[in-house]
Structures are given as structure tokens and as C-alpha cells.
Design a protein around this nucleic acid. Structure first.
Lengths: 133, 133
DNA sequence: GACTTAAAAGATGCTTTTTATCCTGAATTG
DNA sequence: CAATTCAGGATAAAAAGCATCTTTTAAGTC
């Protein structure tokens, strides 16, 4: 549990690959799949998602492909992970599922919230730029 | 992804329930299942696991049941989570699966390692005693 | 020793998520 | 319009999650 899924791994690798491209250079999905060792169709879905969430730009036709939609300094591990895996560490109550009001009075709830906040902060601390070097 | 599974939730609730028992009081699995709103058989498996990992003591027969094997101050969220869910955030390489040596020279690898270390530290910071109040 | 109670251990099955693959459609270019 | 490249939807196999059931073992009771 609590690990990146394949999808998450491919996602991070894909973004780092794009970050390593030359300025204004576009990458084809087929090329990326080989480079980062990911199934092409699956990777295509992942990039599609990034395109929707505004992390990546895509264009079709000859000369098309994928590139980052913003500087790699402005993309963090958190952006990537949450984009493909959804919200992390969803906060269920650790005491009783039925009676918890999910509010400040529930200690277990607050503990888990803190875990979540810290994890998100840690992930947000790593930029793609720093990983791509 | 990255959330507690049901198993993890039941586990935390179960341990907190035991922490709230009176000194030397044992809890039956059937009683626990009702109290924390978990399926009895499934909870039994989880407690079995805790018994093996030394967090919980169990005894059979009349007057038997479960109790914590050590003070609730000495059991952390990390102990619980790793006991039932296994090692968290397993560290695959984020660049290339095949060529990574998983060593110090891999930046992405080190980043993920750091995420993992921080998460473990955060979880280790919460004792069952503090949650059981 | 037989009986009851309660956890341990193993086998099994259902459901959901993950991990893809494939096909058709839409946009872009030459 | 023909080739290229991504978009979107449908489908399916494999794995993980979520249990349930049965049998066995251990401990206390009569």
C-alpha cells in the first residue's frame, strides 16, 4: 500500500523525460514509451491526463507531440502524483466510521490529517527541474 | 492510492480500542468487531497478524481474548501501518526501471527515499496513547 | 476426559482496481 | 485528401482488496 502505482511511476518518468528535452522540442508518445520503458498505449492515457490538467501541452499531426506546459521549476512531485493518482491519503476516520463527524474534536482524524499535510508538503518540495538534472 | 486500506483502518481502530480497555482487561474479537464497526472474520485475521508481530497478546479459551502486548505509549501509527500493510512507499526508480542502480547517484531515487523517510517519521510521531484519549 | 470457549490457520470466492490493449475519431500538416 | 499524431471510449486480463467459511489448536470448566 501507499506506494506509487505503475501509472504513477510512468507519469513521473514521462514528465522528467519531457523536462530533459531541448527548449521547444516535442516528444512523440512512441519515442517516450521506449525511452522510459513504459507501454505506449498506457503512457498515452497518462499524458492525455496531464494535457487535461495543464501540466503538459500536446499537438497533433506531423511535427506534433508533447512538451511541458510550464517551466520544470514550477512542476512538483505533488502536481504529478495528484494529477494521475488523485488525492492522496484520503482521510477516513481511524476510530469509528459511523459516528465520526470528521471535525476538530476527533483526535485520530486530526492525526491522519497531519500525516497527509506533511506528505503533500514533502512531495511539493521536489521540483521536476531538480529531478531532471 | 496512498491511502489506508480497509485493513489498515480496522487495524488502527482495533489497536486504539484495545488501548482504551482497562488494565489487564481482554477483549473478544466479536466484541471488538461490533465496537469498531469491522467484519469479525476480517478483523480476526488482522489481530492475528498483530499477535505475530508482537504488538498484541492473545489467549484462547474461556477468559481469553486480545490485549496490547506493550504500553500504548510505545506503539506508533507506523508500527500499526507497517505491520498490516507492509513496507510503505516502496522505492522504485522514477527515471528508468531497467538501468537504475538504486544508489546515491540517482536523484529521483534519492527524492523518493526522502519522501519515504519523512512519511515514516511522521507516522512514528503519533503514539496510540495520544490517539486513544 | 469430555465439553465449551476462543483464537489460529488455511482454503476459497467475490469485487474492485490496476494495467493495460484496441479501435475509431478528430486535429494538423503537407 | 493522405499521412501523421493525439483524444476518447470500449474492452479485458491480472492483481489486489475484502472478506467468509471451515477445521484445528489451545485453554479453561465440569
Amino acid at each position: 500500500m501507499m506506494g506509487l502505482t505503475r501509472k504513477g511511476e510512468y507519469a513521473v518518468r514521462g514528465i522528467i523525460y519531457l523536462a530533459r528535452q531541448k527548449k521547444d522540442q516535442k516528444a512523440l508518445i512512441a519515442e517516450m514509451a521506449v525511452a522510459i520503458d513504459a507501454p505506449q498505449n498506457f503512457l498515452a492515457k497518462i499524458m492525455q491526463r496531464f494535457s487535461q490538467s495543464g501540466i503538459v501541452q500536446s499537438s497533433r499531426g506531423v511535427g506534433g507531440g508533447f512538451s511541458l506546459a510550464k517551466p520544470s521549476e514550477e512542476i512538483t512531485l505533488l502536481d504529478i502524483v495528484e494529477s494521475v493518482e488523485g488525492s492522496i491519503l484520503v482521510n477516513h476516520c481511524l476510530l469509528r466510521s459511523k459516528t465520526c463527524k470528521n471535525d476538530e474534536t476527533c483526535r485520530a482524524h486530526r492525526a491522519w490529517q497531519k500525516v497527509q499535510d506533511q506528505l503533500r508538503a514533502t512531495l511539493a518540495g521536489f521540483t521536476v527541474a531538480s529531478l531532471a538534472k
